[in-house]
Amino acid sequence: MALLSKKDANLILDPLADNNPITIQVLGICSALAITAELKASLVMAISVIFVMGIGNIVISLLRNVIPSKIRIIAQLIVVATLVIVVDQVLKAFAYELSKTLSVFVGLIITNCIIMGRFEAFALGNGVWRSFLDGIGNALGYGVILVIIGFFRELLGSGTLFGIPVLGDPIAKTGLYSIGYENNGFMIIPPAALIVVGIIIWVQRSRNKALIEEA
C-alpha cells in the first residue's frame, strides 16, 4: 500500500469490514439478494457495481461544483443510468445467457442505494481521487458480501461452484453423496438469501461487539 497514504487506504479497507455497506449501513440490499443463487451471477453483479461506482463517483466528484443542489438527485440518476446502460449493453454482447439470468436486476443497479448514498455522502464533497477510492472501496465491500452469499447458496443448494460440481455427483452418488449427503433445495429459493445475510450479520457482530445495536 505504498501507493496510498494511510488515510486513503482506509477509504478502501473500512467498507470491507467494519463499515460494510450491506451489513452495517444497510444499503444496496435491493438488487443484491435475488441474483445470489449462483456464484457466477454474484461475481458479475459485483464487478458491474464496482465499475459503475468507480466511474460514477469520479464523474459526480468532477461535477460537484456545477450541479445545482435542487436537481442533484435527477443529475445523479442520469449519470448512473448512463453507466448502467453501458454495463447492460456489454453484458448483452459478451455474456448473453448471464444477462438473461440477471434480467431486470442490472437495471436496478441505478436505484442501488449504495451508489446514491456514496454520491450524496462522499462524492459531492470530496476530490476526484478520494471519491474514486471511496467508490471502489464501498463497491468491493458490497461485492464481498455478494460473493460470500453466492458461494454458500450455490455450494449448499446445488453442490456446485461456478456451475462445476465440487461435492460429487448427486445422481451417481459419488463423493459426499455416497455417504448420504443431500443438496439443500431450500438454499435456492429467494428467501434463503435473507437468512444467509442475517447469519453473516450475526457472525460479524459477535466478533466485533462495538457494532451491536441497542434497539
Binding site: T23, V26, P191, A192, A193, L194, I195, V197, G198, I199, I201, W202, V203, Q204, R205, S206, K209, I212, E213, E214, A215
Partner: peptide
C-alpha cells in the same frame, strides 16, 4: 445481542 435490530429483521423477512 448480535442479532438485535438488523439481523433479526433479515431473518424474520426470510
Amino acid at each position: 445481542p448480535p442479532l438485535r435490530g438488523l439481523g433479526i429483521t433479515f431473518i424474520i423477512t426470510g
